[in-house]
C-alpha cells in the first residue's frame, strides 16, 4: 500500500503544488486547508506522514501539531513543518509542539519527497 501523506496548507496553490509533487512520487495525498480541517481529516484517515504549514487561519501549525500529539495513537505520526518562517523562536515552538522536522521553503519537491520517505515507516 502506498504511503499516505496529509498536507495542511491554506494556500490552494501550495496544496496543488504539494499534491502534484507527492502524487508524482507515488504517494496517496490527503489535503486540508488549515489545522482544524486537518484534525477533521484525521478523524477518519490515518496518514503515514503529515506535512503542515505554520501560518494558517482558524488553527495554525503549532496548535495543529499539539492537537495531533495529544492523541495517544498519533504520537508516533511524523509531522513535517513546511514553512517560509526562518525565525528561531518559531522553530522552537514547532519543536516543542512535537514537530518531527522543519523544512524551509522554497521547497524542492525532490527533497521533500526524500524527507517524507525518511520519516515514513
Amino acid at each position: 500500500m502506498s504511503t499516505t501523506v496529509l498536507t495542511v496548507d491554506d494556500s490552494r496553490a501550495m496544496r496543488d503544488m504539494l499534491r502534484h509533487s507527492l502524487l508524482a512520487a507515488g504517494f496517496r495525498v490527503l489535503q486540508a486547508e488549515d489545522g482544524l480541517h486537518g484534525l477533521e481529516v484525521l478523524e477518519t484517515e490515518r496518514p503515514d506522514v503529515i506535512v503542515t504549514d505554520i501560518n494558517m487561519p482558524r488553527m495554525d501549525g503549532f496548535g495543529f501539531i499539539e492537537a495531533v500529539r495529544r492523541d495517544e495513537s498519533r504520537r508516533s505520526m511524523p509531522v513535517l513543518v513546511l514553512t517560509t518562517e526562518v525565525d528561531a523562536e518559531k522553530k522552537n515552538r514547532a519543536r516543542a509542539a512535537g514537530a518531527t522536522g522543519w523544512i524551509v521553503k522554497p521547497f524542492d519537491p525532490i527533497k521533500l519527497v526524500e524527507a517524507i520517505r525518511r520519516v515514513a515507516a
Partner: peptide, 19 residues
C-alpha cells in the same frame, strides 16, 4: 493584523515555489 500578515506571508511562500 494576523490576516494581513498571512496574506503577505502566503504570497511570499507561493512566490518561493515559482522562484
Amino acid at each position: 493584523v494576523n490576516a494581513v500578515f498571512r496574506a503577505v506571508h502566503s504570497i511570499k511562500g507561493g512566490a518561493g515555489i515559482f522562484a
